[in-house]
Design a protein around this nucleic acid. Structure first.
Lengths: 232, 232
DNA sequence: ACTGGCTCACTGGACTAGCCTCTTAGACAG
DNA sequence: CTGTCTAAGAGGCTAGTCCAGTGAGCCAGT
């Protein structure tokens, strides 16, 4: 979870006690072999064991609740949600444990489908937004910039044009990881121009309402901007 | 966010103050036209305005932080994250605002790819898990059950066999929504048997390491189990 | 004019103590 | 046996207090 990924220095994010508690409670759940439906120890008890106040523990429990790990019930206690898997899932995502190839894989899967849907469903407004993104990127590159802003706009416009909120949500979920890939790729000399050209091919296929061509163009594009990563 | 979706009654989940605060703060951000990087009012100030204690407000801020809406910095304040979009995104997901067709769309996109990857990458253990899931489902159906458990096991086994943690995470993210679709579908008379047969076709393609056939079989399967929904 | 160090007001971080409401099991009366 | 009541224990929330980080502004030294 960084901020200001642009050239600036990383602002050290100070550790928060509740974050540490979340880790410890997660570890406890695992070590104690707790299963969905089981109860966590009482707040007063848990707070004492962990050496923190109830107020702080309450924050950790809120975090776990938002993460979908537990369900706190007034008068009963904190019960483990039926799918504790999402815990490690989200944790893994946030910690960037996922390797780059897998991210590219997920991205191409989602964006390939989004491109096809965009070709089928795009409205005039959607097309205008896509063209605008292309203009922005072209202008950025002309100014000697990498065109990251236009690039981002373009992919957002495609996502919007697909008119599928669920897929859009999944894209948002991995957006941060993709952003890193994108920035590195556009840093390569000559890359922005190539990237812009493949964007144009995608836009043309969507304009022509050709789903198969749109998917193909999108996959080729992602292949282009991703291969730099795979050299590692 | 329900619990015990199985036949049981819904346990009324009592409203929590912090949840209400999250809504109010979200509304405030919108109404005050705050942009990424802007600061929220100070905790003491905000707590007083909302008529709650600082401890409770702190819980709401933790929730917003976990949701990715804000980033609380010691000594500075709560700054809006650069992508406030994910806020409404996750909120929308949790509230099931997404319509069924879109869920099916996302599911087929992901599982189609997962089936192809499984065909390419499955190990002997993966195959054994898939076969085991088929056995479980067959036994359940023989006992007059709907086979939901075996069904779930099967799709989990496919996901595991694809060996892509990012895609697996995305699947987990929409798993709850899919569960509902699955249960309804298998409730139809004759459906469990049809579903089992199409599972076998998927398994055969994965056994034969034929990605294209696996994707095709998976898409046909999802089509089969989903059409009941689309009748609405 | 700039640099560095200092201070201070303000911000969040965390704890404590206490009282409230809710849940549940068990005692008890019918 | 059944329904009711009660008390213990759970979480919800508040108020007050102190600690720690931030950053603007002042001021002396260069």
């Amino acid at each position: 979870m960084e901020k200001t990924a642009r050239a600036g220095l990383e602002r050290v994010s100070r550790p928060r006690l509740y974050e540490q508690l979340v880790e410890q409670i997660l570890a406890y759940i695992e070590s104690a072999q707790l299963r969905p439906g089981d109860l966590l120890p009482a707040e007063r008890d848990l707070a004492e064991r962990l050496g923190v106040s109830r107020a702080t523990l309450a924050q950790a429990l809120v975090a776990l609740e938002v993460l979908g790990v537990i369900d706190v019930q007034h008068g009963t206690g904190a019960v483990l949600a039926r799918r504790p898997s999402v815990a490690s899932v989200i944790k893994g995502l946030r910690e960037h444990q996922s390797r780059l190839p897998e991210i590219v894989e997920a991205r191409s899967t989602l964006e390939g489908k989004l491109a096809a849907l965009a070709a089928e469903r795009r409205t005039g407004d959607d097309l205008a937004a896509i063209d605008n993104a292309l203009d922005v990127m072209a202008r950025e590159i002309n100014d000697g910039d990498r065109g990251t802003h236009g690039d981002e706009l373009f992919h957002q416009a495609i996502t919007a044009a697909a008119h599928s909120s669920v897929l859009a949500q999944l894209m948002a979920f991995i957006a941060e990881m993709i952003l890193e890939t994108r920035m590195e790729s556009l840093g390569q000399p000559g890359r922005p121009e190539q990237s812009l050209a493949s964007h144009r091919r995608i836009a043309d296929a969507i304009r022509a309402q050709d789903p198969a061509a749109a998917t193909e163009a999108m996959l080729a594009h992602i292949d282009l901007v991703s291969d730099v990563e795979l050299l590692r």
